Structures are given as C-alpha cells and as structure tokens.
Amino acid sequence: MKIARRADYKRMAWKNGQGVTEEVAAFPAGSTTDNFDWRLSIAHVGADGPFSVFSGIDRTIALLDGAGLALVLPEGRIKELSQEGTPFSFSGDWEISSRNLNEPTIDLNIMTRRRRCTHAMQRITLAPGETLTTPGFNWAVFNSPAKIEADGQELAIERFDAIALEAGESFTNHKTEAKILLVTITPAI
C-alpha cells in the first residue's frame, strides 16, 4: 500500500495548454504524456474549451468538484457530468470540448494505452467501520477527508489524496462516510 498526498502531486499544463493538471501517478515512473502506459490525474477546468487529443488512449473522467461539466462529443452529442454521476469512458482519439456549468470544475481522469492496459472507475462510499479490500491493482482517490486504519495504523486522509492498493490489501474507514473514486488498472493480456 502506498499513500500519494495531494501536496506532492506534480502540477503541469495540459497537453494542449488550455488548463492545469495534478498528476497523481503514472506508469512507468518518469513517463511523459506521450509515453505512459497509464496515467491518473486531477484536472482543473477553469474555462470552456477543447480537450487534449490522446491517440491510442482510452479515458474515463469523473467530476470531483463544481456544478457540472458538459462534454461536447463527436456528432454534437452532449454528456453532462455531475459530482454524484457515473464516471464517463471515451476514446482519447475523439476531438471533444467541455463547458463548465456555472463555475470552474475539477475532475479525475484515468488514461490507459490500448493493448498495454485497461481500466475501470467507479464511485463508492465507505460507511464508518467498512473495509475496502481489492482483488487487483487499484487506486482509491478520496473525494472527502477521512480517517482510515491500514496495517494497524490510523491515518488522516485529505480530500484528493490517493492510496495505491495491490491485490488483497485493504483499509478500514473510521469516523465519517468516505467518498472514493476507485480506479482498477489491469495489464492487457
């Protein structure tokens, strides 16, 4: 188990220069936006505009903060994201743009390179006393502060901190409900 603290995330401009992202983690270590196998990041969307195109990449996005984000998809389709909504998966090859609904937004992104990895993202809520045990390699990104117990140690988790869990590793939530986005990354077979 590894804890990634938001204060330590690498901040960088988007590939298209239209915004800022905080890189939670990427593989392999030291990879760039051009050669990662997978990349987990938090994007700050301050203005309406185009998304970066990532050819050969599969993406999933979930809204963390803000009133809502409308994605303008190919053929003019619109997909609106909300803080409680289901994460949305799409091809990084698509040319899409976004529009904030009333205020800037923050979202979580997982990107995986096709034929190297696949991924899934889901929202979960852990009640006090509930334990999360993972069957594979996962990242738990917290969308609320939490107090957890892992390996007999109590830890304070801040909003947007993340925990990398290998198969069979677990933690128990304490005190209050914990809102988490659980990202599963699987190597391609």
Rank of each mutant, 00 (worst) to 15 (best):
M1E: 15
K2I: 12
A4F: 14
Y9P: 06
K10L: 15
K10H: 11
A13H: 09
N16G: 07
V20G: 00
E23T: 14
F27K: 08
A29K: 13
S31Q: 00
N35W: 07
W38G: 02
S41V: 04
V53Q: 13
G56M: 11
I57C: 05
D58F: 12
R59L: 07
I61C: 14
D65W: 11
L73W: 05
K79A: 10
S82Y: 13
Q83F: 11
D93I: 14
I96Y: 01
S97L: 00
R99D: 00
D107Q: 07
I110Y: 06
T118M: 10
R123N: 09
I124F: 14
I124L: 15
L126F: 05
L132G: 02
L132S: 04
T133P: 04
T134E: 08
P135H: 08
F137A: 11
F137L: 13
F137E: 14
W139Q: 07
V141T: 03
S144D: 07
S144K: 01
A146H: 02
E149K: 14
D151F: 03
R159Y: 00
A162W: 01
E166M: 12
A167P: 01
G168C: 03
E169A: 05
E169H: 09
H174W: 10
H174T: 02
A178T: 03
L181I: 09
I185F: 00
I189W: 02
